[in-house]
Simulated scan of single mutants.
Amino acid sequence: MAPYPLDRARTAFVASLDGLSGLLDHLDDDALHARSRCRGWVAGDVLAHLHLGLAEMLAGFPARTTQDADTDLATYWSAPLPGAEHPEWAHVRFARAVAAAYARPSGQLEHVRTTVRGLRRLVSDLDAGYRLEFQGHVLEVSDFVATWVVEVVVHHLDMAVELSGVPEPPASGLAVVRDTVVRLTDDPAALDAWDDRALTLAATGREPGLRPVLS
């Protein structure tokens, strides 16, 4: 399958980071204790998990390779990940421990903002495709960026479930989630009845109605 369009991935990722930055502006100590959509985590725990991932993403860009890609934005979600042999609760506890290490829940916000600013500049400047190694797989950089659009958008929704007046993820980011789900389903036409936001929640098992294909 052809690489995901770099322009589409780049635009959606930058917009998704801007949406996340808007959400961060609404998060204080109280909001970070709000319930999330992730079992066992409050919003601050989800943010710690997302930040760990974004830092790993930032470190992934220099790992260029001439090897052929073996994973794309869809198959990434079914490929084995490092640490998959450990029980899910182990990472749940780890993310909670990271969030709890700050003297105040809001202490992590500036660390997240620094990572977001670096990623935004880096991805905004991407003007040509290449392949990179990440988590034992080889991806086109456009597919790599698209997988992280999904991660940012989904966890944005996770953190905002109990918060009012906060920004929604951007339409371009939700559209990349749809593109991913379409590639993973056996019946793409059945997804036409779902709007992008509802599809994102159902395809990740956050809401009922579809077999989860993203996790």
Rank of each mutant, 00 (worst) to 15 (best):
T75L: 13
P80M: 05
A95M: 03
L73S: 06
S78T: 15
L47G: 01
E85Q: 11
P80H: 05
L50N: 00
A90Q: 09
W41T: 04
H91L: 14
L73A: 12
H49I: 00
L58D: 14
R64P: 05
L50T: 07
L50A: 02
G83H: 08
P82M: 10
A95G: 03
F94L: 13
G53W: 01
S78Y: 03
T71R: 13
P80A: 10
M57D: 08
A59V: 03
Y76T: 03
L47D: 02
A90D: 05
P80E: 08
M57I: 11
A55V: 14
L47S: 02
P82R: 14
S78G: 12
L52F: 06
L47M: 04
T65L: 06
R64G: 06
H91T: 11
V42G: 00
L81W: 09
H51F: 00
D45T: 13
W41D: 08
A79W: 08
H86R: 14
L52M: 06
T66G: 12
T71K: 07
P80F: 03
S78M: 10
S78D: 14
A55Q: 15
A63D: 14
L58S: 14
H91C: 06
H51T: 15
L81A: 14
L54C: 09
G44Y: 10
W77Q: 09
T66E: 15
A48Y: 03
E56K: 10
D72G: 13
H51C: 10
H86Y: 06
P87G: 03
H49C: 00
W41M: 08
L54H: 09
A69H: 02
R64M: 10
A95S: 15
A69D: 02
G44Q: 08
A84Y: 00
S78I: 13
E85T: 09
Q67V: 10
P82A: 12
V42C: 05
P62F: 04
W41F: 07
D68Y: 01
Y76R: 02
P82T: 12
H49N: 01
P62S: 06
D72F: 07
E88L: 07
T65A: 08
E88K: 04
D68Q: 14
A63Q: 15
Q67T: 12
G53K: 03
Y76D: 03
H49T: 00
A55K: 14
P62N: 08
D70V: 12
T75N: 10
V42S: 04
L58Y: 09
W77S: 11
A69Y: 00
V42I: 05
F61I: 08
D45K: 01
E88H: 06
V42K: 07
W77F: 15
A90V: 10
P62R: 07
F94Q: 13
A74V: 15
